[in-house]
Amino acid sequence: MSLSPDEVKSIAFLARLSIQEENIEQYSQDLSNIFGLVEQMNAANVDQIEPMAHPQDAMQRLRDDVVTEENQREKLMSNAPLTEAGLFLVPKVLD
């Protein structure tokens, strides 16, 4: 299995990762090798096997729909790169 440089570029875009042009070839080789390793899964016949998502096959626990967090807006926002008037600032989205 091999992933071409163009495929790597499209995966990087899906993952929203900028990759330097000069590194694309290396990622293409690395990802091809990783999926080469992953292909060893094909040797296993798992048609009749149930997938396992949780080691104890536990169900997702639900809690009551009530507010339990205290409001600490300023503390939480102090980690943001850019804020104004209690809002997160991002580059213009709409013209």
Binding site: V38, M41, A44, V46, I49, E50, P51, M52, A53
Partner: peptide
């Protein structure tokens, strides 16, 4: 082909 298959193999290992 990938995630679901891997989850099935996970059960074999378990």
């Amino acid at each position: 082909a990938y995630y679901l298959k891997a989850q099935k193999i996970r059960r074999l290992i378990s």
